[in-house]
């Protein structure tokens, strides 16, 4: 997380609207991304996340509203915006017929870096992204996680100060996901601003300084991860007991009413950390009751949407 606080926003959007035909995809979006921070746009498929990124990255024109990206208007000063940003989309934007090194070289040439500087930067990225072995291989031969790394490395060749990551870990295995998170953290440590979209609350929580929740084209909540999580009641423990007597005793001392007499379970609100877990167990110890079984439920996207919209996350197709 960045500790520097600057006042110049990397992205500022007011009253942004976009529809495709009669379908409104973005319906009056306001948001500000501070330079050097990670901003996460959290939402289910079809919420309008990709449309939002495409507008900010000059690929799509908004119908209305005012937009500044890196201090410029993405329509009137598209090239100035393009020179400042990097985009890594949901689908690896790589040339699968070329090798990893050739892909990076292509980016160096398109950034007009010159031969020496281009080679230097390509070599550094190959090293940094752990691609030394894959460098001479065609990208089509790499795994999904490696392709995504090549994709991000290509984005970084031009040294962008603002990076858009559209669902950077969707479809990746857990290990690749953690590696991707690590890379994002390193970028932020270097002062890069990251605008991230994701379907995963955990990802936004891990990476973002601020999160905006997007639903049906509107921002329904915005704040720091802690601010948002405090408003989400979804986190809880489920305790199962051996007999109804123990269940009733536990319910009484823990002061909870949410219990299931048939399953012999008790639902206790909790954010799932060790301290609150200890506290619950200590309370039970005090009355000599021990649960048979315990599960921790951490809040997920569904809980977020339930908290802010009263509806489960919508699942219609992502509109491009």
């Amino acid at each position: 997380m960045s500790t520097t606080v600057t006042t110049r926003p990397a992205v500022s959007v007011a009253g942004l609207r976009k529809s495709f035909g009669t379908k409104t995809v973005l319906d009056g979006i306001d948001l500000t991304v501070t330079e050097g921070t990670v901003f996460a746009l959290l939402g289910p498929n079809g919420a309008g996340k990709t449309t939002m990124v495409r507008i900010l990255a000059t690929l799509l024109e908004a119908d209305g509203g005012s937009i500044r990206v890196a201090g410029h208007d993405p329509v009137r000063e598209a090239d100035a915006v393009r020179a400042a940003i990097g985009l890594t989309g949901q689908f690896a934007a790589v040339d699968k017929l070329l090798t990893v090194r050739e892909n990076l070289r292509l980016m160096a040439d398109l950034n007009r870096l010159g031969r020496t500087e281009g080679r230097r930067r390509v070599d550094r990225l190959i090293q940094r992204f752990d691609l030394i072995e894959s460098a001479p291989k065609p990208v089509s031969q790499l795994s999904g996680g490696q392709q995504r790394r090549v994709d991000l490395a290509m984005t970084l060749v031009g040294n962008p100060r603002l990076i858009f990551l559209d669902e950077p870990t969707t479809g990746l295995d857990p290990r690749s996901r953690v590696e991707m998170w690590q890379i994002v953290r390193e970028l932020v440590a270097e002062g890069v601003t990251v605008f991230l979209t994701t379907q995963y609350l955990e990802e936004a929580d891990q990476l973002a300084d601020r999160i905006a929740v997007l639903d049906h084209g509107r921002i329904v909540a915005e704040g720091t991860p802690d601010e948002l999580k405090r408003q989400i009641p979804g986190g809880h423990l489920v305790l199962r007991f051996a007999d109804p007597g123990a269940l009733r005793t536990a319910a009484a001392v823990l002061n909870v009413t949410n219990r299931d007499e048939n399953a012999l379970t008790l639902q206790v609100p909790s954010d799932g950390d060790i301290a609150s877990l200890r506290a619950v167990l200590a309370t039970l110890d005090g009355v000599h009751v021990a649960p048979d079984h315990l599960t921790i439920h951490t809040p997920d996207l569904d809980d977020v949407f339930f908290a802010f919209t009263g509806n489960p996350a919508s699942t219609d197709e992502e509109t491009r």
Partner: peptide
């Protein structure tokens, strides 16, 4: 996706 990359570059 590559065409989006090209189009988002200066």
């Amino acid at each position: 996706g590559i065409v989006d990359r090209f189009r988002s570059m200066a």
